[in-house]
Design a protein around this nucleic acid. Sequence first.
DNA 1: GACCGGCCTACAATCGTTTGCGTAATTTAA
DNA 2: TTAAATTACGCAAACGATTGTAGGCCGGTC
Lengths: 331, 331
Amino acid sequence: MAATIKDVAREAQVHMSTVSRAFSVPHRVRPETRTRIMEAARRLGYRPSRVARALTTGRTHNIGFIVADIANPFFPPMIKAAEHTARARDYHLFVADASEDPAIEAELVDALAKQVDGVVLCAPRVSNAKIERLNETIPIALVNRKMTGIPSVTMDVVDGSQVAIEHLLELGHRKIAYVSGPRQSWTNSQIRRSVTSTADDRAEVTVLGPNTPNEDAGLAVAEQVASSGITAVLAYNDLLAIGLMEGLHSLGVDVPGQVSVIGIDDTVLARLARPSLTTLIVPTPDAGTAAIDLLLQYAAADMGEEEPRGGAHISLPTKLVVRDSTAPPPD
Amino acid sequence: MAATIKDVAREAQVHMSTVSRAFSVPHRVRPETRTRIMEAARRLGYRPSRVARALTTGRTHNIGFIVADIANPFFPPMIKAAEHTARARDYHLFVADASEDPAIEAELVDALAKQVDGVVLCAPRVSNAKIERLNETIPIALVNRKMTGIPSVTMDVVDGSQVAIEHLLELGHRKIAYVSGPRQSWTNSQIRRSVTSTADDRAEVTVLGPNTPNEDAGLAVAEQVASSGITAVLAYNDLLAIGLMEGLHSLGVDVPGQVSVIGIDDTVLARLARPSLTTLIVPTPDAGTAAIDLLLQYAAADMGEEEPRGGAHISLPTKLVVRDSTAPPPD
DNA sequence: GACCGGCCTACAATCGTTTGCGTAATTTAA
DNA sequence: TTAAATTACGCAAACGATTGTAGGCCGGTC
């Protein structure tokens, strides 16, 4: 049906191999033959088969991009950026949704392994040991997780949550809660640690959770917050924060009058919520782009094209944006 | 490196072809040989190469999923559902973002064509003629566009916008605007037509646009709305509606006191906006699932496995959800 | 006991490229 | 003009599977 390299060869009166070279190493074929070949290719509407090419070269020019939950507004901007930069490098992206499930995550890597040059795991829920093992099969790059020996890009939530907590301390809060995210999240443990160490003895910190990082879970945790004398909350992400605000609202607790709330991610939702949500800006598009580039150079190294660089780590800065959900505690 | 079918064959003391059959047509190989083969495969950690398989069978078990803008919250739930149902059918999804650009859209289809069994075009911006031509290269299924001869799934926005307009008429509005979406959007023209024909001579309808379907464009159109005596607006999507509400707010125009606003899509944003947005619920996950299934059966037919069914059209029901952004007009 | 019909399994061609190797053609040097 | 050094191209073997065809073995029948 579609034209193959053989058809082009016949049309241009040369051997297949010459056609192949005309595309891959143009300078190795005489200019006039080259143009003759290109002409023929154009006439026949020839496009090289990536599949066949992959079979011989061992490189598919595809990348797997696995996220915990596509519907979580944290991810789309990252996926979008990743897809664009991949395309700019002549790569295509398989996007898969692991539904916050470690087992599915691992299975996806295995399933994809045979038809990609590498996999980006975003906010992985799977264990370090498992990642280590998967990385022996196929090059892996991590987003929102740091492991020695594996390239990764993380958001500097340690600094970010520190800034967030300082903000609350400055406002005068002394009873603070951290609404925790999923247990398997590396980011979550980073934040938790940072929160308690920042508060130190300047404030009492309660950890509520772990929670699935969605609105419903946030809503469910509202009661605990309302009944515990807590005056300020930092949540693992905007979804939890917004759910919490809704829950508090329906319990008649005023935000920020009685309780201040801070989210993380600065998703589109944060600005729209009422009160608008004070939150941590994390550069998700940059993370997507960086992850692709890191993976690509790591994968190239893996194919012996250059010195393997092991685990390069990129940490992206975060920034607190203060909106209307934070205020001094009630006296 | 990784085990091939040949390794398994050697390990199990049979010919490659037998191994192949053990996987693809298990009943054609003697049970004991089969278990011996499976054992060997397990020991070697063998996974068939989808790439090699694709080369002989002509089926890649991959699907291209092209959307206008991943970051538009309308799409992620659809992508998620599509990815899940594709996976359940043993297919993987290439997701690509066309940035609302017809040229990129077409280029993406071409680029993907050689390594997918079909492509789902979501809310395509490219012309009918071009789609027709692309469909000759590779099976295509459409979401939010209807064309004879090509399978598609659409949301019943004609009915939906009719209901929306009736809602406004009942409230007493007589000067209504439709804030139009992108010119190339099929849905957009459907809605526009439906709005004007529903209003008929019961209300005066102004069309504002076309607009890029994002918040900024909505914001920009606020001034026109404010200065024209319009008391109610239906917008092409939630993003435009929300932008418009913001714009009106900053112009000191009260929603819904002075102007009522209705969106379309019922994205996560609608419920969060203040006032919460009256909008049209469209079943995006169902659309994703249906598109995959339609494409798969259409693509199978295309491979001669059954009678081609040409263009099956699925229309999904929409539903108006009334929230706080609509009210009677000021007297 | 030879023959026939069914299962199983092996053989080998094929899918569309890439690529190392060899050779014809061309250029350069002498 | 000829030998040497390049260059341009053709040849054919991979890559890892699938699949049509053919042969081997088996038991059962007459």
